[in-house]
Nucleic acid binder design. Structure first.
Lengths: 203, 203, 203, 203
DNA sequence: CATGAATGAGAATTCATTCAT
DNA sequence: AATGAATGAATTCTCATTCAT
């Protein structure tokens, strides 16, 4: 079976990547089984190794792809609109990715929780462009007096992203009961901006 | 043979539990190594099996202990004082546990991220008493008009706990840079109550 | 499809054979890698199998070629001259082959050391014509009284060839330090004829 | 099965070493099979790894043991007697080792023929004490005028050892036909000292 | 004919668990 | 009770060979 088209090859690679994401999301790097991944992807064990040099590399590629997908979300974010609308757009884009690529997202989140010295820098690096975008939105919010200015914007950006992840985790953990993906963006923005205190008086 | 005093036995058990927590925190259930745990705890491999029936049971016991420690935090929470003071006390108690039993906490958090059907219910169950306490505090806050009343208090409790975990994770992930354990409780309460919006006018 | 000229085909075959000899010399039959051989020879893996039915056959052909090269050395050996000159010529021819086809020679020597029932007879068989020539030379030496006659000439022939191989091995093993290829023929003849005892009185 | 006596442990180790030597002698490092070695030694696969960290280490230990055995041969070599008697004693000791530890010897010889950069220095190093002894004997022979003095004694020592190995190889290769182990020592000394030329006139 | 992707048997190695001492 | 040697199922990875393109 030689000389297959680059498209066909890419298709197999993609299928392996997605199957691997599923397994790694479910069982982690150590718990996942290369044989099972290959089998589930519909290829023989050896074939997987024609695409990825080792289990570790496969994992790294899945992580990379997960980060890439996450970072890609805000391409072409609008410039106009209220801060709240902007944050909502960001959160909705995030949820959209989650819907389509849940497996990759879960691998990223799960790995992020393990703080392994060999993957954590990778995660941070790939997250950088995403955080930049959040920061840009928040900075305009600070200028407009819609965001408290007593904290570094980097920290606020981390808090926003963290809030999203937190809600994802609660979504997963509750089996989708609460919060649902529909309500999640609004909830995230509300929690981030307003907190749990009593409603602010609107001027 | 050799009858051992119950105290000595309990001491060995405890050492095994703590060493195991450290290893599970570092490498997860699958990645950890029974030999290494026993060795690090200063006993032979076989001895570990005199205390725990299997690796899985050892893991479950570590998880259980982690949850117990977390749930124990609020023993003797005061009844009086402002809502903010109460939440701060809760958060500080949490951080205090974190300082002393970081390894157990990391195992719990890490496992919580994996959503495994066989351990997730366990986590939820063990978390219940803790959540109850948070709920009790929040309910009084709602009565006092200090907490928004448009959301179920269960959800607010989850958000508070989630915010704490989120900040723990950012603490670990940043290598302790931000947030530091000192500032963490205040930050958590502020984020939870006030959000990132502009300061409320105090009446 | 694509009919190839017999010359081109022979050229590819030869390149494969030589590359294979290099790899087998370096790593042995089991250690060598079909992929690596094909790659180094500049063809695809599958192509190799158009020329040789299996790794084992490829190895057998390399061995055969090595023996053939070794046996070819004495074509046109002169009839006249002293015994010592004759042996010197034999040894020099041997060294000449070694220079040009070192890889094949090393495969043969290496394989000879493993005494495998499935290749050893092959080696012996291919060595036969070469040994014949040595025997012929030695027989004339015996007739001329220049060789001790108390040992079967077959054994003496084996000793002569063995001495050559021994010195090759010491040449390879010493990284070419001692003996050098230049001094090797003379040394071989001297060792074979004179031994390490004190010089004979020449009559 | 714990706490076995050091003797029992050493016994198992020894059996593994000997079985491994047999397999490595037969099939080489790459061709040998760890499972088969363990099985033949009467232990489970995993047990072998309790004694040797890897196939490579096992091989290195076999090589080491082979060299050690070879180097041990001349303990207590006598000081008196003729050169020829001394060399004969050396050769006989060698043959004695060969009889008892043929498998180790074959591994050493076989490996020596492969000139692998990672094992060759090891071989040389372990051979050193043995060569020293040969040298000492030969030096006395030179002083006594029984050995030609026109060659460095190191080279002569290598030639003597090489001659022995050469005859071993011919012994193995001929299936024990020629030379037999009985005649081998005398033959080696004769070949080494006298060569194949006509007998020297004895003074 | 050449190619190189696919295959899967086989090899080395790990490791949780058992159990004789 | 403690030990650590023995076990073998399970896992990762290799590689000779096949065959569709």
């Amino acid at each position: 079976m030689a000389r297959i088209s680059p498209e066909a090859r890419e298709k197999v690679r993609r299928r392996l990547l997605e199957t691997a994401a599923e397994h790694f999301a479910e069982r982690g790097l150590e718990g996942a089984n290369v044989d099972a991944i290959a089998l589930a992807a519909g290829v023989a064990k050896g074939t997987l190794y024609n695409y990825f040099a080792s289990k570790e590399e496969l994992f790294a590629r899945v992580l990379e792809e997960g980060c890439r997908l996450a970072a890609q979300r805000y391409r072409g974010g609008r410039r106009s609109g209220s801060l709240r609308a902007h944050l909502l757009a960001l959160a909705e884009a995030d949820v959209a990715v989650l819907r389509e690529e849940e497996r990759f997202m879960r691998v990223v989140v799960r790995e992020a929780m393990s703080f392994r010295p060999d993957t954590y820098p990778l995660l941070i690096e790939h997250m950088a462009p995403y955080l930049m975008q959040v920061k840009a939105v928040l900075e305009r919010g600070i200028d407009a007096g819609e965001i408290r200015s007593d904290r570094p914007v980097e920290q606020l950006a981390l808090l926003f992203v963290g809030t999203l992840v937190l809600l994802f985790v609660q979504h997963w953990g509750s089996g989708g009961t609460w919060p649902s993906l529909e309500e999640l963006p609004e909830l995230a923005v509300s929690v981030f901006l307003d907190g749990a205190g009593p409603p602010r008086e609107s001027p």
